[in-house]
């Protein structure tokens, strides 16, 4: 059955009201009814196997599609206490459906690097299920550089047990439609998560960064900062929700979304939400949408910096801060280079 409103989310689903995937996926997209090519590179000691997928009662429509077309699950296992210099790398995912699981054993510490660079006129639907055992740390870097006519939905579920930590940095350039969704469940005490991202959109590109953080135990520490810029007729979407359950006392959680419109024909939609049932917590969210500071631009030009360069410098300074929390300096510099490249071409 080809993709349609009958097997994809529609705008009537609250979580998809700004990201009309059934419309974007209409027509003949490559990979719509096929398994995605996947390449996984792992450091020595980490294993990759294929296991059968089984349906669950609460599968979303996208999970059902993956079940139907993705074939066996790619299962990555990181043993207890494992550490390595080299990252786990996931490549491929250029079209089609995929299911991947990543399990970090107790105290394991590893970097995961994903590069999403899809095919022209393709549909990609990938599901990554991450389990962080107690004390595990995952440093995840995702770069999305799809072509303008690619539709991508990348959904990640992270389950974190006691003292586990997720450090996530995402750099996205959008596509015909892209949705990068992270769902984080804190199932043990004192979990930590940094979930930062930047989106840079031009032409008619669309990028949706959605996240849901569900905390069920005390002492969680969550920091989220997503920043974006939109040029031309592009559209940026941020949806973030922190759900702090009654036992999750002493949760310390901050969510920020800050965006700048570089054109008045572009669009930014954002919905930050807090749902809090514990009474002794520090939770905050902030959301700003603005434009480049004209007075700052004039000041820079008065010093001799040409307008385009002044704009690029201010934009880089604005966006770049989301990567300050990335410890890997080489990686940080490479993300900033990609960001600068976009600013230069623009």
């Amino acid at each position: 059955m080809p993709l349609s409103a009958s097997n994809l989310p529609t705008r009537r689903d609250e979580a998809w009201k700004w990201t009309d995937v059934s419309r974007a996926a209409a027509g003949d997209l490559r990979g719509a009814e096929a398994a995605a090519p996947v390449q996984i590179f792992v450091p020595q000691g980490v294993t990759v196997t294929r296991v059968d997928a089984t349906p669950a009662a609460n599968d979303t429509s996208l999970q059902k599609l993956a079940l139907q077309y993705a074939g066996q699950i790619w299962a990555i296992e990181v043993p207890d206490g494992f550490t390595a210099e080299q990252p786990i790398q996931i490549e491929g995912l250029t079209q089609g459906h995929a299911q991947i699981t990543l399990t970090l054993g107790t105290g394991a510490k590893v970097q995961l690097v994903e590069h999403y660079d899809g095919d022209a006129n393709a549909f990609v639907n990938s599901h990554l299920n991450v389990k962080l055992s107690a004390d595990a740390v995952l440093d995840r870097v995702t770069v999305q550089t799809d072509p303008e006519d690619c539709v991508r939905i990348a959904t990640t579920h992270v389950t974190a047990w006691a003292n586990a930590e997720l450090v996530q940095h995402t750099l996205a350039f959008g596509g015909k439609l892209s949705r990068l969704e992270t769902r984080f469940a804190g199932m043990g005490k004192a979990v930590k998560a940094t979930m930062n991202g930047a989106y840079l959109l031009d032409a008619a590109r669309h990028c949706d960064m959605t996240s849901y953080v569900d905390l069920a135990c005390p002492d969680g520490l969550i920091r989220q900062s997503v920043k974006g810029v939109t040029a031309d007729k592009s559209r940026g979407v941020f949806q973030g929700k922190f759900h702090v359950r009654r036992p999750a006392q002493h949760t310390d959680a901050e969510m920020r979304h800050d965006a700048m419109m570089l054109s008045d024909t572009s669009e930014i939609r954002s919905k930050p939400e807090l749902e809090i049932y514990a009474d002794d917590v520090a939770c905050a969210h902030g959301n700003t949408i603005g434009a480049l500071d004209e007075s700052a631009l004039f000041y820079m030009r008065q010093r001799g910096i040409p307008l385009a360069q002044a704009r690029a410098m201010l934009t880089e300074a604005f966006l770049g801060s989301v990567f300050d929390t990335l410890d890997d300096e080489v990686m940080r510099e490479s993300l900033l280079d990609k960001l600068r490249g976009w600013l230069k071409d623009d």
Partner: peptide, 17 residues
């Protein structure tokens, strides 16, 4: 004088010069 967040003074001035 304007504040230029995120741009170190030396970077700013070298770029300008």
């Amino acid at each position: 004088p304007l504040e230029i967040p995120g741009v170190p003074t030396m970077t700013f001035l070298k770029t300008a010069l």
